[in-house]
């Protein structure tokens, strides 16, 4: 970034940080500027990276055949049908494009989730314990898995043995969520560190900068 870009970035960074004191016109200006710039960048990226190479490019190719034109126009037409949702009276044609889109992702989801998340994870759980102290960990993992699944089974009341299992499952869940919370704090702090690094290094030059 050159100096002008750095100054603009620093100004906008401070506009957003001003929200910590209270909502103010600088923050609102920065917020709305961001929304417009992000949406504009998204549109430009869709055009340059998808529409141009995958639709316009093939249609303008010198030796394109009729089948190629048809195969390229079909998704373009579906896309334009989808855009008709903008007009309340034209949502009916848009449903055809939506149906195609939803059908694709539903079909992908069925096989993808079943293979990778259900079968693979159950298969990794149903295997002989390793030797030594690893067996203790393996037993704990199996107990945790079964008790958490027991907790999430709401079709039967959580009483008796089921209730006890669910209670133990909640303990495992609390440890997992505690770990997630700790890591979430880490993530948010990392984002702040990056912005403060930018202000102190790139804007104020109070700390040295070169990535080695």
């Amino acid at each position: 970034m050159n100096d002008a870009q750095t100054w603009i970035a620093a100004f906008l960074t401070l506009c957003v940080f001003s929200f910590l004191y209270r909502d103010n016109p600088f923050y609102r200006f920065a917020e709305h500027l961001f929304v417009g710039a992000a949406a504009g960048y998204l549109l430009a990226t869709q055009y340059q990276n998808v529409i141009l190479p995958n639709v316009i490019g093939p249609l303008m190719a010198p030796k394109i055949q009729a089948s190629g034109i048809v195969l390229t126009l079909i998704p373009a037409m579906l896309g334009i049908l989808l855009l008709l949702r903008v007009f309340p009276r034209l949502t009916a044609p848009a449903r055809w494009a939506l149906a195609f889109y939803v059908g694709v992702y539903s079909g992908i989801a069925v096989t993808g989730y079943m293979q990778a998340q259900v079968i693979a994870q159950i298969a990794d759980s149903v295997k002989p314990f390793e030797g030594g102290w690893h067996a203790v960990n393996s037993i704990l993992i199996l107990i945790g898995l079964l008790t958490v699944l027991a907790y999430f089974f709401f079709s039967a009341p959580h009483t008796g043995l089921h209730g006890l299992s669910a209670r133990v499952g909640i303990w495992f869940l609390m440890v997992a969520f505690g770990a997630s919370f700790g890591y979430t704090v880490m993530a948010r702090v990392s984002l702040l560190i990056s912005r403060v690094q930018f202000l102190l290094r790139d804007f104020l030059h109070w700390i040295p900068g070169v990535v080695s």
């Binding site: 096989t111 993808g112 989730y113 293979q115 990778a116 998340q117 693979a120």
Partner: peptide, 11 residues
């Protein structure tokens, strides 16, 4: 990440 696991790694 879930999708890369489902497709690149598993499929």
């Amino acid at each position: 990440a879930d999708y890369w696991i489902q497709f690149a790694a598993s499929r």
